[in-house]
Design a binder for these strands. Sequence first.
RNA 1: GCCGCCUUCGUCUAGUCUGGCCCAGGACGCCAGGUUCUCAUCCUGGUAACACCGGUUCAAAUCCGGUAGGCGGUACCA
Length: 475
Amino acid sequence: MAEKVVVRFAPSPTGTLHIGGLRTALFNWLWARKNHGTFILRIEDTDRERFVEGAVENIISALEWYGLDIDQGPIYQSERTELYRKYADQLVASGHAYYSFETPEKLEELRTIQRLQHVPIKFDALREGITNEVAAQRVAKGERHVVRLRIPRDGTTSFTDQIYGQISVDNAEIDDQILLKSDGFPTYHLANVVDDHDMGVTHVIRAAEWLPSTPKHVYLYQAFGWRPPVFAHVPLILGPDKSKLSKRHGAAAALEYRNQGFVPEAVTNFIALLGWNPKDDTEVFSRQELISRFDLNKINKAGAVFNIEKLEWLNGSYLRSLPIDVVYEYAKPFLGTYVDQPTITDALELARERMRRLTELPDAISFFYDETLVYESELLIPKKETREQTLYALESVLGMLSDFPADRYSVDELKKACEDHIARNELTNKLALWPLRVAVTGRAASPGVFEVMAVLGKGRVEQRVSDAITRLKSL
RNA sequence: GCCGCCUUCGUCUAGUCUGGCCCAGGACGCCAGGUUCUCAUCCUGGUAACACCGGUUCAAAUCCGGUAGGCGGUACCA
């Protein structure tokens, strides 16, 4: 019996959830669901300076909108400071960490010197200047201090990443990382390791930017005598300029895609494919298929540029294939005053056939409900046809329509009636149907004429057709 | 600067471990054609890539070495 899978998504509340974070969350969630494991949301709010009001709420509502339900949390690191303090002290006691008293200003000075000397920037020399006893006394007296990790000067630290393979770093390259800040809060490195262990996290799935600091974390696990989790670093999502996707690349906020008319199914499908693929040619996945086919071993290493074109294509595909009532729910915010129209789902059914984003919606359905249509009368005349012919065709069709019963206004019945009428009167589809469609929609491009008529109903159709006839006559 | 990672069509990618089936496959986009009352959908076809140099081999996108480029990290940020 394998150990139960526990994963966590651990964002810091420093702003809105971005698309990169969303993908990290998605991968964690998929792994949890696939393995019937637990998905924890942990808020890494140990930096009080950078905390942004409302960020946690934004993260939670984004996860919710994208259907990534959390099993545990949110758990706030800021409420667990005693735990980190306890473990930091334990590390000092075991000789794996030490107290340090340098001010940030002093450190900056040292950093500058090392930069000029072209050597790795490290502060491990600080551990030499002071004995444990003296340090402990100064701490006891309440002097401001930090706790630093004592990394050995020789040897290497290595680990096997599920995605990147074996990573080894010489300990000499690793700095004596600060674990506990002088304000009593832990840094990411300590809090992360302590919490992952404390919460029984089995798989750490996080962005590749963490790869360079993972050896520190591995060393921490060793220092504590804990078994490290499986690490799986996922490649970064890039902007068009190939740098890490961020606000300056435009709409990178996860919930912004909702405002831009995308449906969550499309966005999650799309970002799942950024850096992962099922090794066959499948492109469109249901949530269930995504769960069963997702595999950490199939994630690749290179960063992936986020290109909106393919997202739009996918979104259009979902708009067409999702159940209409689901689409209606997503569409509501974009429907404006049309939202309560009795025929709205019929109109939506036609509109979704030619949409990529829900933002196109008001414009795509307005002609169904406008009292008067605004268009150039010339539009009624098909290419290479005359005004007279068009007028004749429309009047002829209107005559047929007047005798056509309102209770038979369905696409099939209308189509049959019109086609019969065209055949009997030696008209052509182009000559009869184009003006008819323009008459009822006022558009050069629109859904099919029979579909539109079935939604509009007898009264409005005939009124619009006779309006068109009047227009033609006055041309 | 130092350390690490990465490198196949414009973009997302398959193929690389286990060299030959790859003069490199799929998808988006774009172009052309078909269907058609228009648009969209749909269908058909086309466009376009193994970063570079050298080595190993009968044979290299695949193995080895180097170069270049990109990205990430280098905080009392996460």
